[in-house]
Amino acid sequence: MKTLNIVTLVLVIVGGINWGLVGIAQFDLVAAIFGGQDAMLARLVYVLVGLSALWQILPLVSPGMAGEPRPAPRR
């Protein structure tokens, strides 16, 4: 589970950097690397980044999912 969280976090960071470049310089790095926005590999990266963002929402809505210790139950 920790590996999946790291991989998805890296993909979300890549997506954020890509969107920053699009906003600042109108340059889509993913499209430039993989042959255009319509290229199959570029579309795959876009989908993986989107799914990674959804996966990274889970720790926000579920306490303890991010590897944080849970409080001990009261007796």
Rank of each mutant, 00 (worst) to 15 (best):
M1T: 05
K2L: 12
K2Q: 12
K2C: 05
K2R: 13
T3A: 07
N5A: 12
I6N: 09
I6W: 01
I6M: 11
V7S: 06
V7F: 05
V7T: 14
T8W: 02
T8G: 03
T8R: 09
T8F: 06
T8A: 09
L9I: 05
L9A: 15
V10H: 03
L11E: 02
L11K: 06
V12Y: 01
V12H: 02
V12T: 10
V12S: 04
I13H: 00
I13S: 04
V14T: 07
V14Q: 00
V14C: 10
G15K: 07
G15C: 09
G16L: 12
G16K: 07
I17H: 03
I17M: 13
W19V: 13
G20C: 07
G20A: 10
L21E: 08
L21N: 11
V22E: 06
G23D: 07
G23E: 05
G23F: 06
A25R: 13
A25H: 10
A25L: 14
Q26L: 10
Q26T: 13
Q26K: 15
F27P: 00
V30I: 15
V30N: 01
A31T: 06
A31M: 04
A32W: 09
A32Y: 05
I33P: 01
I33S: 01
I33W: 03
F34N: 08
F34H: 12
G35E: 08
G35V: 11
G35M: 10
G36A: 10
Q37R: 15
Q37N: 12
Q37W: 00
D38K: 10
D38C: 00
D38Y: 01
D38G: 05
A39L: 06
M40V: 13
M40S: 09
M40D: 08
L41E: 08
L41S: 09
L41I: 15
L41F: 12
L41M: 15
A42I: 09
R43F: 02
R43T: 08
L44C: 06
Y46V: 09
Y46D: 10
L48R: 06
V49Y: 01
V49E: 03
V49N: 01
G50E: 03
G50D: 00
G50T: 11
S52H: 02
S52Q: 03
A53S: 13
L54I: 14
W55H: 09
W55E: 05
W55S: 04
W55D: 02
Q56L: 11
Q56T: 08
Q56Y: 00
Q56M: 14
I57P: 02
L58D: 00
L58V: 14
L58A: 10
P59V: 03
P59W: 00
P59T: 02
P59R: 04
L60K: 11
V61G: 02
V61A: 08
S62T: 15
S62C: 13
P63C: 09
P63M: 13
P63A: 12
P63T: 13
P63R: 14
G64L: 07
M65Y: 13
M65L: 15
A66E: 03
A66D: 11
A66Y: 01
G67T: 08
G67R: 07
E68G: 08
E68T: 14
E68R: 14
E68F: 06
P69K: 15
R70E: 12
R70L: 15
R70Y: 03
R70V: 14
R70F: 06
A72E: 13
P73M: 06
P73W: 01
P73F: 04
P73T: 03
R75G: 12
R75L: 15
